[in-house]
């Protein structure tokens, strides 16, 4: 059975919705009733059937519409996709990873035929049929990273590994939570995380870097991160902050359920074989409050997490302007009963 791809928008009239099945598979990021940074990295192994972790690279009902939104962002601002000159080989590595993973997990939608360097890629949802020579830039309409990530949900950062550090030397970033690839490209792990509050002092990044530089081929890892977004907008870039920032002042008790979205990033980490670089896909999942509270446990827990969040984190995540309104609205769904451990809806 194939995926029923929705036609929807992430801007203007914001017609994005989750189907009831997709609400249940939402990667809720809180395993307890409070939140603080931790090195919450775990092996990226297959999860339960139907979950976002069933396949190494998840494709869902929003795929076609998300790719249309990415094309709009890139047409407006080509600086969202950049690759320093030494990263082309890593781009080919990424193309291989994404094509083989998609073709294996979703054979009804994607297929890949390889005859030595002669590759034939079919992407049925996007209507693409491409024959090309692996490694030959002249046989694809874009560079390898841009070509395949225009067909893959989520942002992608490719990190070069040298001198015991990771360097953000290539990426495509159109669905980001408020950071600029154009500004951060070329930075090392500590530099591009520099603006994050509290975590440096806790030694989080030192430990995370040690872990990530040792991620090995065939053993990817993952972690969840989260923030909140007003309206189901994928492109919450700093570039356009002056355009979407005013949305944060529009939250009222009446519209919380439709306007406020929990935004979860499934970040995974993969060693790339030819370049020895690390690719870091950041896959974004959105859920509106009205959809989220269909799980009583998630509603109770989110209320407690947002209510008790340290001030620095609330500021960093941009919640300040509407936090009180949101907490008051969520309180209606929290009768104070305990929640079971773990992420699941109940």
């Amino acid at each position: 059975m194939g995926i029923n791809f929705r036609t929807e928008t992430f801007r203007d009239d914001f017609s994005f919705r989750n189907s009831p099945e997709h609400i249940r598979r939402f990667p809720f990021p809180f395993h307890e009733d409070s939140y603080m940074y931790a090195v919450n990295i775990e092996p990226h192994v297959a999860g339960p059937a139907g979950s976002v972790l069933e396949h190494p690279i998840d494709v869902d009902e929003h795929y076609v519409s998300e790719m249309a939104d990415r094309a709009l962002v890139l047409a407006e601002d080509p600086l969202r996709c950049q690759s320093l000159p030494h990263m082309t080989l890593a781009g080919w590595d990424l193309l291989e990873l994404l094509m083989t993973a998609k073709a294996e997990s979703y054979p009804e939608h994607f297929s890949l035929t390889r005859d030595g360097d002669r590759w034939h890629w079919i992407n049925r949802p996007l209507g693409i049929d491409q024959k090309f020579l692996f490694g030959d830039l002249t046989t694809l309409p874009y560079g390898p990273m841009e070509y395949i990530t225009r067909q893959s949900q989520g942002d992608f950062c490719i990190l070069d590994q040298r001198d015991g550090n990771l360097w953000m030397d290539a990426g495509i970033v159109t669905t980001q939570a408020d950071w600029s690839l154009d500004f951060d490209i070329g930075m090392n792990f500590f530099e591009w995380h520099a603006p994050v509050p509290l975590a440096h002092e806790k030694g989080i990044f030192t430990r995370a870097l040690k872990f990530l530089t040792n991620v090995q081929q065939g053993k990817p890892a993952r972690r969840l991160n989260w923030t909140m977004t007003i309206n189901p907008r994928l492109d919450t870039s700093p570039e356009n902050y002056h355009k979407w920032g005013p949305d944060r002042a529009t939250v009222t008790p009446e519209n919380v359920g439709q306007k406020v979205h929990l935004r979860v990033e499934l970040q995974s980490f993969w060693r790339l074989p030819r370049s020895n670089a690390l690719v870091f896909p950041i896959r974004c999942y959105l859920i509106k409050m009205d959809e989220l509270v269909t799980s009583p446990k998630w509603a109770r827990r989110l209320h407690r997490v947002i209510r008790d969040l340290p001030e620095e984190l609330a500021t960093y995540k941009g919640l300040t302007r509407y936090r009180a309104t949101l907490v008051e609205w969520l309180a209606r769904y929290d009768d104070g009963t305990p929640t079971s451990p773990g992420f699941g809806p109940e």
Binding site: F183, G186, M187, P195, P238, Y241, H242, P246, A249
Partner: peptide, 18 residues
Amino acid sequence: HYSRRLAAFQGVCINAED
């Protein structure tokens, strides 16, 4: 926040929300 590649600090709209 500083970028060596751009030789510049980052400027972000201070009153974007209002």
